[in-house]
Design a protein around this nucleic acid. Sequence first.
DNA 1: CTGAAAGCGCTTACAG
DNA 2: CTGAAAGCGCTTACAG
Lengths: 340, 340
Amino acid sequence: MSTIRDVAAKANVHPSTVSRVFSGNARISERTRRRVLAAAKSLNFQPNAIARSLSVRRTHTIGLVVPHVYTGYFEDSFFPQIMSGLLDVTYAHHYRLLVSGCESYADEIVQTLQILRSRQADGIIVTSGRLDVNTVGELREQGTPLVLIGRPPDQHGDVGWVDADNQEDTRRIIARLIELGHRRIAYVGGDPDTRVVKERLEGYQQAMTAAGIAVNPAWVDYGYFAEDGGYQAVGRTQTGDNSPTAYYAANDLMAIGILRALRERQIDVPGAVSVVGTNDSPEASHLRPALTSLRVPYKRIAAIAAHMLINAIKEDSLPTGHQILSSQLIERETTAQCLA
Amino acid sequence: MSTIRDVAAKANVHPSTVSRVFSGNARISERTRRRVLAAAKSLNFQPNAIARSLSVRRTHTIGLVVPHVYTGYFEDSFFPQIMSGLLDVTYAHHYRLLVSGCESYADEIVQTLQILRSRQADGIIVTSGRLDVNTVGELREQGTPLVLIGRPPDQHGDVGWVDADNQEDTRRIIARLIELGHRRIAYVGGDPDTRVVKERLEGYQQAMTAAGIAVNPAWVDYGYFAEDGGYQAVGRTQTGDNSPTAYYAANDLMAIGILRALRERQIDVPGAVSVVGTNDSPEASHLRPALTSLRVPYKRIAAIAAHMLINAIKEDSLPTGHQILSSQLIERETTAQCLA
DNA sequence: CTGAAAGCGCTTACAG
DNA sequence: CTGAAAGCGCTTACAG
């Protein structure tokens, strides 16, 4: 592999001149530019990006750590959409994405810190929904640009972040179910330690309260984002007179589990019970009955996050400010008027 | 951000000593190791990975370029599974993944070459199913480790690669359909310029020929991996007496389109027509009727590819050899005895 | 076991 | 516009 010196020798110029023609922003006479380019071409030369990074202290790379061991993480529409949004804007800015796996929540933080401290990326996108106050503080201490997908703990409101309007979106869905005549409505969350799940629960309670409905604690359940979790939730909630006539699930996989459990019990959907999922994953529209689902704009969220991050990197500042995006309820065949 | 010199000063040793305690493999007295570690900790020091990479000429990173603009690419199970397999083994070897987007086939090659030539990664995984002879040659000329997911052109059989046994898998499926009594069987491929699509077509023809069935050219169609492509293929093939009683689709999305078209035409599945998809995507099992599909072990394929690549990198050689994995037909509710 | 020096392959402020 | 030099932050062969 040839270096800038080989090219310089061949073109009969100083290495710094070669550097200048490749860095693009220096004034170089057309004649020597041509000579250098010809020499470079004949040697199949391309500048070593690592050497350049060391010199300019910028890698043109943004980091992302993904929990590669969580089954379902990759099948859920969250990850692909995030990836797609991130790639859209990194690509447009000639950035690359440095991805690390991680095998637990704790490790997710370790990997994130490692990427930042070892300067492998100019900044990082953090998607963990379980960040606590201390972790965010530690992350910020690195002085490296950072933007969160999801809401930070209140003490760190000034970090850059972008999120869906989880609480309000859920409130609206529940209000809609109430409008359809439902009163016994179940909330099936994912991992209860997760911010998004708590926010959605808030929205649920808010809507119920606003309608003057006392929430039965038995209607609040957690399926940890798994198909079987949704299935089990039905077993725990369909217990007689007080059984829910509608389910809101915090992802589609759980909604699918709920549908399966209801089918087994010969409970008609949407005749007897309505079901709403979240994320509008590809299968939602292909199911029979087609699943009503909340379409969360993850791709746009990720794109905005990447924008914030890259802008901050370019102007050598830390990202601040935030953006909150609304989701759209796609009503299909699993929701209907309550006849109970 | 502190450097090795700051730590050295604080610990009262030479920078090279600090380097040695962090690189791990040099003999250092317990006493100075402790001193150095303490100094490092108090300064929140972590070695700059870029500087290290430049020095050791190794980035501990492997490259991947993904066509981020193709709609459906991220939703198809191919990408998430590849990602997951890659992450599994890169993580285990303390490697990271450098991901670049690309916006066309030509650009895919450009980005790949760029990553290799600029030495941003120690090696690269190439997933393009459209590599021609020249491109593979050019890629190899870089002298950088490279492994293909998918089969290379015949002239480059010695490059490292791993693939599913596309032809044989498809042959087996078609033979199975024939065993069920089907004779008018349609093959709905994706992009006809793609190797995998050609290989599957071979398998299809092989099975038909072996059973003494003359292939009607009208039964061979292409849906470009899109739902609507599958839908359209039904319109073009269901044309009277010679209409297929079974469809094999090269991905599930097209199979779903086929199911939709058949439903619209009130053609019963699997009573009148059988349908087989490919990839066993998450929705396959959630559809009604549940889709029979070929489960291609992409995750394992990717993991093996990453292994080959990292091994080659570690022993400073170029990957050669290949592995071919069989897929499994998951028979569900869309296939049955032919009653026509 | 530790230090001093040269080098990895670029960039860029300083001269001219 | 171009050259010469110093520097980015590490590693490692060479001495001792």
